[in-house]
């Protein structure tokens, strides 16, 4: 404002009012845009074919339910369905921590007719799993009290930020995936590549790998197992395969298995060293499509994926 303008009280008042109106305009525009954007993005989440959208749309009935971290993605659904003829659903996600997996499994069991078998890769019992992944599931908190509570208790800032600005709720890779799978199935989500020679060599330089699990994780797992059993679901706990030279570097796998067996009362089927061919691995923690098929054949042969006899009555 120029000095000349400020010499006239009326004009000064006018400019002050004008600026205040602009500030209000910004705030109103920001708020309305945020709510409109939130509504549009919410529609994307609700209509997506992404696994968690289907879960919260109550459209994820199955006979075989799978869960795990990125290593759980090797429960390759198209192949299992082709071989067994039963329906499947996989709740696995990269870096999934145990408490998040527990909430998702319980939500699935509450919202659907219980599956016959729940297969859980127990290697998600590791503190290295990304607990901040929970914040990525902010876009599903409006549909789940469990997720909402977990999020509020673990990451209150993110939870309340998602209440203040609805756009923030969709600020995550989880939402990006929901958008990507808006019109297509996510069941083909598995590595295609073969572990590179340099990565194979790199395994030799790796130190001892120990799972960093806590009593809380064991309790959470035991609670899920009990919850599933009460719903009449058979639970199978497995350790999915690692690249053999890496599997040999794992120090405390026996301790992890023992602790799990003690807390859940179930055996842990150890397949950590069950696939030997290099061509079956995408990297040293993950099977690729070829390896996954070989592994699933093994699980079918061992009866892990076998349904109880009353399947035909469903």
């Amino acid at each position: 404002m120029t000095n000349q303008q400020s010499n006239h009280p009326g004009i000064e008042q006018f400019y002050k009012m004008k600026n205040i109106i602009w500030v209000i305009a910004v705030l109103v525009l920001v708020f309305l845009g945020d709510r409109l954007g939130g509504w549009v993005l919410g529609s994307v989440v609700e209509n997506s074919e992404f696994r968690y959208s289907r879960l919260y749309r109550n459209n994820a009935d199955c006979d075989l339910l799978f869960a795990g971290n990125s290593r759980g993605l090797i429960f390759y659904q198209p192949y299992i369905e082709e071989k067994t003829g039963v329906s499947t659903f996989n709740l696995s996600y990269n870096g999934m921590p145990m408490d998040l997996a527990a909430a998702l499994i319980k939500d699935h069991l509450d919202r659907h007719e219980p599956p016959k078998v729940l297969v859980l890769d127990v290697t998600l019992l590791d503190q290295r799993m990304d607990r901040r992944l929970l914040t990525g599931f902010n876009c599903y908190t409006p549909y789940s009290e469990r997720l909402s509570d977990l999020m509020r208790d673990s990451f209150p800032n993110d939870y309340y930020a998602g209440k203040v600005t609805h756009l923030y709720r969709y600020n995550s890779e989880v939402f990006q995936r929901a958008f990507y799978y808006l019109k297509k199935s996510d069941e083909d989500w598995l590595l295609d590549r073969v572990i590179s020679p340099s990565l194979q060599k790199d395994v030799e330089n790796q130190g001892v790998f120990d799972y960093d699990f806590t009593p809380e994780m064991l309790e959470s797992l035991a609670a899920v197992v009990e919850f599933a059993r009460q719903k009449g679901v058979r639970v199978e706990l497995v350790v999915n395969p690692y690249f053999p030279p890496f599997a040999q570097k794992i120090g405390n796998l026996p301790a992890l298995k023992m602790a799990i067996e003690k807390s859940t009362g179930l055996p842990v089927h150890d397949y950590s060293n069950s696939i030997s061919g290099v061509d079956g691995f995408g990297d040293y923690q993950h099977l690729n499509k070829t390896g996954a098929k070989e592994y699933l054949d093994r699980l079918m042969k061992d009866g892990i994926l076998e349904l109880p006899e009353d399947l035909s009555s469903r």
Binding site: V26, L29, D34
Partner: peptide, 19 residues
């Protein structure tokens, strides 16, 4: 100016990493 403020705030909210 109003539009750019709003767009920047939306973008920060939707893409920002707040750690």
């Amino acid at each position: 100016r109003v539009a750019s403020f709003a767009v920047l705030l939306w973008l920060i909210s939707f893409f920002g990493t707040f750690g």
